[in-house]
Design a protein around this nucleic acid. Structure first.
Length: 445
DNA sequence: TGAAATGTTGGGGCG
DNA sequence: ACGCCCCAACATTTC
């Protein structure tokens, strides 16, 4: 008997998932599969993935099926599974990250004879190749990219989950989640993450429902870490527990939705930039940053990571990150600016720490955002735009409720003095930037 | 999706 | 009443 492999990758959901739809519609017995490659996953991602896989397996069981877990290189694992089962087709959701594209290219190459590979572009609203300037170039600036994306019109209406999946009748080995061992390497973080999140499709849909209640005030409250005015959908979107189409259609009818929906297009834009510039995670897009006099300082990096810089807004953010796997967006900008501009530490080291800590760690979003903050992206905050962590705190946490929540020492008076003087650090950073420009000019001249 | 430095203006205190 | 100064408030420029 023939069968269809349903390969789950980032799209860990049953609703609005075209690979799931197609597998269900094939009428074949379906073998749902997740393959964990030797992972580079950070702690936050590991914690989330483990729970999201449990949730997906539960949802599949409700349809009379179950998730097969295996470890290894996807193309190899899938080839073995084909030999085991005689499956004659595979359905999967495409991904756009450079390594993931290599991975799926190897799977596509399994097409042979009657074996059929069907893949679907599901993770984003618009395909990266389709959004082009009038001259056929790729966009490098967000706003024109966004305008051009809107020309594509509304995203399609989301599909419902299938009502059933024909199970595979044979027995199949599946490694257990315990064997996959996705527990965070730092076990002390688990309790805080558990208290903050419900990974999985049901949790994602609940969070989307909650988001409809904050849409109206989003434009006003989004920069206030003390108010909780953001959607907190990022990890659910990252793991594909919910699709951008679902988010778009459920928020669009609410007054004031434009500001929040615009954020979906930042997600699209980051993926677009990574697709067209695969070196985005490690190489500055602006060439003068090749000459930037970065400072290597293990002590300063650690003070930043541990939330001991002496600047309350920065430290509160870094501690929120450790405790919950997430940091408010405004605070991410301030904390990142502090690392790059006050401490002059290479932005890649900050990006690496975020990848390790975040439950929404996303290569495209994280890389594009760090390049934005560092001023070395194509559409970046200019290098001379330097956040003052004290001013930002009085603007966006005026009563100090956010900083006090994460820094108990503020009340006991044991809080440390700033590790650098911001005014002086700012002058040094501006001089360093001037140096890189001079060097670039002298090389060109 | 900055902030500091510098420039301009206008009201009020004061001789 | 007038000119002068101070300085807050706002605008513009600069980094």
């Amino acid at each position: 008997m023939s069968a269809a492999i349903l390969w789950f990758r980032r799209n860990l959901r049953l609703c609005d998932n075209r690979a799931v739809q197609a597998a269900a519609a094939s009428g074949l017995p379906v073998i749902p599969l997740y393959v964990l490659d030797d992972d580079q996953l950070g702690d936050g991602s590991r914690w989330w993935l483990q729970r999201s896989l449990v949730s997906l397996d539960d949802d599949l069981k409700a349809l009379g099926s179950r998730l097969i877990l295996r470890r290894g290189e996807p193309a190899k694992v899938i080839k073995e599974l084909i030999l085991e089962t005689g499956a004659n087709s595979i359905f999967y959701s495409q991904r756009r990250e450079p390594l993931a594209r290599e991975e799926q290219k190897a799977v596509d190459a399994l097409t042979a004879g009657s074996f059929e590979v069907q893949s679907f572009d599901d993770e984003y609203m618009n395909p990266p190749e389709a959004v082009r300037t009038g001259a056929g170039q790729t966009y490098r600036v967000f706003t024109p990219y966004w305008r051009a994306s809107l020309e594509f019109g509304e995203p399609d209406q989301p599909d419902p989950a299938p009502s059933a999946l024909t199970p595979w009748s044979g027995s199949l080995d599946s490694v257990s989640l315990a064997e996959l061992d996705l527990r965070p390497r730092d076990p002390d973080r688990a309790a805080g993450m558990r208290a903050s999140w419900t990974p999985g499709e049901a949790g994602a849909l609940q969070r989307l429902e909650d988001a409809t209640k904050i849409v109206a005030r989003y434009a006003e409250d989004r920069d206030r870490p003390d108010l909780g005015g953001t959607s907190r959908l990022s990890p659910h979107l990252h793991f594909g527990e919910i699709s951008p189409r679902q988010v778009w259609h459920s928020l669009r009818p609410h007054p004031g939705s434009a500001a929040l929906l615009r954020q979906l297009y930042w997600r699209e834009f980051s993926a677009y930039l990574l697709y067209h510039s695969p070196r985005l995670p490690d190489t500055p897009l602006r060439e003068e940053f090749e000459f930037f006099p970065w400072v290597e300082s293990e002590d300063a990096l650690q003070a930043w990571q541990q939330g001991n810089t002496g600047y309350p807004l920065v430290d509160a953010g870094m501690r929120q990150l450790w405790s919950t796997g997430w940091m408010h967006n405004r605070v991410r900008m301030v904390a990142a600016s502090f690392l790059v501009k006050d401490l002059l530490i290479p932005w890649q080291q900050g990006a690496e720490w975020f990848e390790e800590m975040l439950v929404d760690a996303d290569l495209a979003n994280n890389s594009a955002s760090w390049q934005w903050v560092a001023g070395c992206g194509t559409d970046a905050a200019p290098y001379f735009r330097i956040f003052n962590p004290t001013t930002q705190q009085s603007k966006f946490d005026p009563d100090g409720t956010y900083v006090r929540r994460w820094i108990p020492e503020l009340s006991t008076g044991e809080y440390p003095a700033p590790i650098v003087d911001h005014g002086e650090a700012r002058r040094v950073a501006l001089a360093a930037y001037q140096t890189t420009r001079d060097l670039l000019k002298s090389r060109a001249g």
